[in-house]
Design a binder for these strands. Structure first.
Lengths: 225, 225
DNA sequence: ATCCCTTTGTGAACCGATGCACAAAGTAAC
DNA sequence: GTTACTTTGTGCATCGGTTCACAAAGGGAT
C-alpha cells in the first residue's frame, strides 16, 4: 500500500512541464468564476488539450483527483504552483531596453504570480537613467553588481543579436542559470544553464511554410491575385 | 546524369520545419562572411544541433550536398528559402498596437526576408491615426477591409487577452489561415487554421520550474514523510 | 449494504523524432 | 586507374510522448 498524493516522481517529463502553466491559467480563470471542482474533460477543453493527456500530466505530480468527481480547483492551483516554483518570488532582470525590452517591462503577465522585474539594464547612455514601468534603467556596466545585489536569478535578454552572447557570458559568470533569450542568436552556454528562446522571426517562417503549402504547394509560387 | 535533388518528400516532419529557419540564419551569416561551402558538422555547430540530425533534416528537402565536400552555401540558402516559402512576399497585419505591438512593428527581423508589415490596427481611438514604423494605425473596424485590400495572409495578434478570440474569429472569417498569437489565451479555431503561440509568461514559468529544481538539488524534495 | 453512475489513473500500443554507425559516393593525389 | 581520405545520406535501434481503452475508485441513491 502506498501513501497517496505525494509528489512521487521527481522526474516530470519536459512536455508536461510545458503544459502545466496552461492548466494553471485555465484553473485561475475557473477559480475567479467561483468554480469549485472540475473534471479532466472540462479542464482539458479550457486548456486546449485532450483529457487523457491532461490526466497523465497531472498524475506525474501526484494523485490529486477524486474519481467520480474531478479535481478541486483551489487545491490543484496550489499543487501546480508549488511544482512550478511559483510560490516563491523570482527576481528577473531585463537586459536591453529597446522596443521589446520596454514592452516586456510593461507586460503585466510578468509582474503577476511569482515574477518581479527587479532591474532594467542597457548600454545606451541615452536611455540609462530613464524610468520605465517604475524602474530606473541602469548601465550595463552595473550588470554583475545589480544581479548580485537584487538576487536576480532569471535574466531576460532583449539586446541586439551582437550583444547577446557577451551579456550571456557575463550573467553566467555571476551565477545565473536561467535565461530567456529574445535575441536571434544561438547562445552557447554550459549544460548547467537553461536557455529558452523566443524567436519571432522563426515563428513567422514556420507559419509561412504551412501557408505556402495550403496555398497550393511550391509549384504555384507566383500568382498573388 | 540523373536530375538529383528534387524536393521529393512533400511531408516534411514538423520538427524539421521548426529547425530550417535556424539553419537558414546560420547560412546567411556564413554567406556574408564569404564562406562558399560548409560541412554538416560545421553548420550543425553554428545552428546548435547535432550533425546527424542536420543531415537528416536536409535530406527531407532533397539531396543537396556533395559527399566528401559538404553543402554549397548559396545553393542551400536558396533551397531552404524556397521550401519555407520565403521567396515570396508575405503581407503581415499586426492587431493591437500596445507596447508589444509597437515593438513588433519596429522589429527589424520582421521586415527582412519575405515578411512585410502591411497594416497596424487598434481599437483605441487614442492611437488610431498615429504613425508607427512608417505605418498609419487604422481602426479595428477596418480589419476586414484592410486584410482584403492589402492581401494580408498572416495576422499577428498583440491584443489584450479579452479581445483576441473575437479578432481571431473575424480574420478567419475573411480567409486568414495563419495566426501568430501573443495574447495569453487558448484560441479556438478550425483545423484548417494554423495558430502559433508565443507566451512570455509560460516561458518564464518553465524556467522557474528548472531553476527551483536546481536551487534545491535533487534532494530538496521534502522527502515523503 | 448493494447497485449504478461518473471520472480518475494507468497499462499498453502506437507514432514521430533522435542519434548511432556505416555503406555509398564523392574528391584528390599519384 | 587505383588507392586513400572525406563527408553525405540513411537503416535501424531507441526514446519520449500521445492516445486509447478500461479497471479501479469514489459518490449517491435506495
Amino acid at each position: 500500500m502506498k501513501s497517496p498524493s505525494q509528489p512521487r516522481d521527481r522526474g516530470i517529463p519536459e512536455a508536461t512541464v510545458a503544459r502545466l502553466p496552461l492548466y494553471l491559467r485555465a484553473l485561475h480563470g475557473m477559480a475567479e468564476r467561483g468554480v469549485a471542482t472540475v473534471s479532466s474533460e472540462d479542464l482539458a477543453v479550457a486548456a486546449g488539450v485532450n483529457s487523457a493527456k491532461l490526466r497523465k500530466d497531472l498524475s506525474h505530480l501526484g494523485s490529486y483527483g477524486t474519481r467520480g468527481v474531478g479535481y478541486e480547483v483551489e487545491y490543484l492551483v496550489y499543487q501546480i504552483s508549488r511544482e512550478l516554483g511559483l510560490t516563491q518570488d523570482w527576481a528577473v532582470a531585463i537586459v536591453g531596453v529597446g522596443n521589446l525590452g520596454r514592452a516586456l517591462a510593461n507586460y503585466g503577465g510578468f509582474a503577476s504570480r511569482g515574477f518581479r522585474v527587479a532591474a532594467l539594464l542597457d548600454a545606451d547612455p541615452e536611455v540609462v537613467g530613464d524610468t520605465i514601468a517604475g524602474l530606473n534603467v541602469e548601465h550595463i556596466d552595473e550588470l554583475e553588481a545589480v544581479i548580485k545585489r537584487r538576487g536576480v536569478s532569471i535574466v531576460v535578454l532583449a539586446t541586439p543579436a551582437e550583444a547577446a552572447q557577451e551579456v550571456c557570458d557575463r550573467v553566467i559568470a555571476v551565477g545565473v542559470t536561467s535565461i530567456l533569450n529574445f535575441a536571434p542568436v544561438v547562445l552557447s552556454v554550459p549544460d548547467s544553464v537553461d536557455v529558452r528562446k523566443v524567436d519571432l522571426s522563426i515563428e513567422l517562417q514556420i507559419l509561412a511554410f504551412h501557408e505556402q503549402r495550403k496555398a497550393g504547394g511550391p509549384l504555384m509560387a507566383v500568382d498573388s491575385q
